[in-house]
Amino acid sequence: MRLIHTFTGLLTIIGAAFLFATAHALITDPVNIDPPPTNTGDGSVTPRDPGGNEPDVIESPVPVTTNDTPDSDLPDDALLDAPVPEGMLTLRESHSLFMQDVYFIDARHEHEYEEGHIQYAFWLPSTLFDTDSDRAYGVVDSMPPDATVVIYCVGGECDSSKNTARRLASHGFTDLRIMGVGYAEWVEAGFPISEGVEP
């Protein structure tokens, strides 16, 4: 008898949860987990400053560890052209876009970002839209929707980049690209990095 009482109670709780969840789903924004619309390659891009004016200066507030790598001193091809998941950027393509002054977004954890990130990259994990929307929209509003935006996380099949790309796409961004390699490969290649927080 107690067993039946316990299980009917459990079913009641599950039913109530479904009821509240349905009501919640009806009044909230739709949830989207489809693959984000992203572009590939380093073809035509819209940099930070498409008008040709002085680029927005994004100063790093802390000493910057910069290894500006001239093209003649690039790392070996094996690293630059390492295979990446379909539809994502290789390290060579990512660096090429960096040199064209496009926006970079770091979608990793905050402590990882503060320990080091691609130079001038903003920190924007998808969860920031829920936890600190002012900060998230501060980043979103600082970029024109038609700008080329490269998003990275720890590399490979990490979901964080895709999640951020999905959020940016929902805010009208049209040229989103995802790095198929992670921050570690960028550092290994000796490309420019910063520490701390970008303003």
Binding site: G9, L10, I13, A21, T22
Partner: peptide, 22 residues
């Protein structure tokens, strides 16, 4: 949608001791 609401309802019921076993 369902898991958080289940956590909330089950947590509340356990807290007040209503249908505690369930």
């Amino acid at each position: 949608f369902v898991i958080p609401w289940f956590e909330l309802i089950a947590g509340l019921l356990l807290l007040i001791g209503l249908r505690g076993r369930s």
